[in-house]
Simulated scan of single mutants.
Amino acid sequence: MPITLPDEGLFLHLGAHRTGTGSFQEFLSSNADAFADLGVNLAVANRDGQAPSTLRLRLPDARHFRKGLLEERAALRDEALTEARVNLRARSIISEENIPGSFNAIFADAPYRAARERMAFLASALSRPVRRILFVTRSYETFFPSAYRKRCEFRKIAPFSEYAPRFMEATRGWADLVEDIAAAFSPGEILVARYEDRPTHEALLHALLPETTQMRFAPLERRFNVSATDAACRAMQAAFETNPKLSPREIRAIIHAHADDRSGPPVAEFSERDRAALRDRYTRDLDRIAKIPGVTFLGT
C-alpha cells in the first residue's frame, strides 16, 4: 500500500518546559529513519537524549527587541534553519521548547514575556506554512516546583520560599502564551495536551502528524531527563557552595548517586492554600485556551 505523505509545511512542537519535552524529542530523534521514509525532515533540539540535536536556534531575548539588537540574531536564526534544512525540505517537524522563551523566562514576573516577538521573529524566516502546532500545558502547582528543581542543577539559588511569591503573582500564564502562538504563527491548528493526562509519545505524534499512523515507531527503552530527587537537589546546592562551576558530568553523577534517596522534606512545595489558588488559575486558563480559535484539546 502506498504511503500517504503529509501536506507540505511545518509541524511544530513548542514544549512547554517540564512537560516531558526531552523524552518526546528523544523519541522523535531515535525514529529518524521512519520519518525519512515518510518524507519528513526532523529539526529537533534534543538536549537531554542520546540522539544528536539537529536544531540549534538562538532567538532574541526581550532585551534584544528592546534595544533593536536583531541583526546578529537574524544571522544565527537563518544559519540554524539552513543547517536543519527547514526551508529546504517540503515537510519538517520542529521540536524546540525554547522558541517561546528560554528556561529562565519561567522565573520572570511576566513568564515568557517576549514570546510573541520571539516566535514572530522565527516565523518571518520560515518559507512554508505552519500546519499544526503541539503545546503541552501543566498545572501551575506542580509546574513551578518542577522548574525550580531543574534550576537546582544550574547554580546556587535561593530557597523556594523566595521564589514562591513571584510565582503566585505571575502576570502571564498558558492562555497568554497560546494566544501568542496563534498570533505569531497563524497555524492551521493548535493542539493542546494536558501533562496531567500523560499522553504517550505515539499519541502526541499521531495528533501532530496523523499520517504517522501508517508507520511503525520504536518506543524509548528508558526515561530521559528524569527529575532529581529532593536529596539530589540538596546535594547539588551544597556542591555549588564549594564549586560554583560544576560540570554537567558532575551534576549527573550527583543525580545518579541520590536517585533512590527519598529522604528529607521537599525542596519546592507550595502551601495548600497556594496550591488550591494555582489549580484554580490553571482551570481558568484552560477555559480561556478552549475559546481561542483554532485550538483543539487532545483527549477531549
Rank of each mutant, 00 (worst) to 15 (best):
M1L: 05
M1G: 12
T4R: 12
L5Y: 06
D7Y: 13
L10M: 12
F11T: 00
L12T: 09
L12N: 09
L12E: 01
L14D: 00
L14I: 05
A16K: 00
G22Q: 01
S23H: 09
F24K: 01
D33S: 06
D37N: 14
D37V: 04
L42E: 00
A45D: 14
N46E: 08
R47N: 10
D48H: 11
G49W: 08
Q50Y: 06
P52H: 04
T54E: 03
A62Y: 09
R63N: 07
E72W: 14
E79N: 15
T82W: 04
E83S: 09
R85S: 15
L88M: 09
R89N: 08
S95P: 10
E96R: 02
I99R: 01
P100W: 01
G101L: 07
S102N: 13
A105S: 15
I106W: 05
I106M: 04
F107Y: 09
P111T: 11
P111G: 06
Y112C: 04
R116M: 09
R116Y: 08
A125S: 14
R128V: 02
P129M: 12
R132T: 03
V136Y: 02
T137M: 08
R138H: 11
A147E: 03
R149A: 15
R151E: 10
C152L: 04
C152T: 07
E153Y: 07
E153T: 15
F154V: 07
P159N: 06
F160G: 04
Y163K: 03
T171N: 04
R172C: 10
R172L: 07
A175I: 04
V178W: 00
V178A: 02
D180W: 01
I181M: 12
A182G: 11
F185T: 01
S186R: 05
S186L: 10
S186T: 08
P187L: 02
G188A: 10
G188H: 00
G188W: 00
E189V: 03
I190K: 02
Y195W: 09
L205G: 00
H206K: 02
L208A: 10
L209W: 08
P210K: 07
R216G: 10
R223A: 11
N225H: 09
V226G: 11
A228W: 03
A231Q: 13
C233G: 07
C233Q: 11
A235G: 12
M236V: 07
A239V: 01
E241K: 10
E241I: 04
E241F: 06
T242H: 11
K245D: 14
L246V: 03
S247F: 05
R249E: 09
A253H: 10
I254F: 09
A257S: 11
A257R: 08
A257Q: 10
H258C: 08
D261H: 13
R262V: 01
P266L: 14
V267P: 05
A268V: 07
S271Y: 02
D274L: 05
T283S: 13
T283P: 08
D285F: 06
R288N: 12
I289V: 07
K291M: 08
P293E: 14
P293H: 08
P293M: 12
F297K: 08
T300R: 15
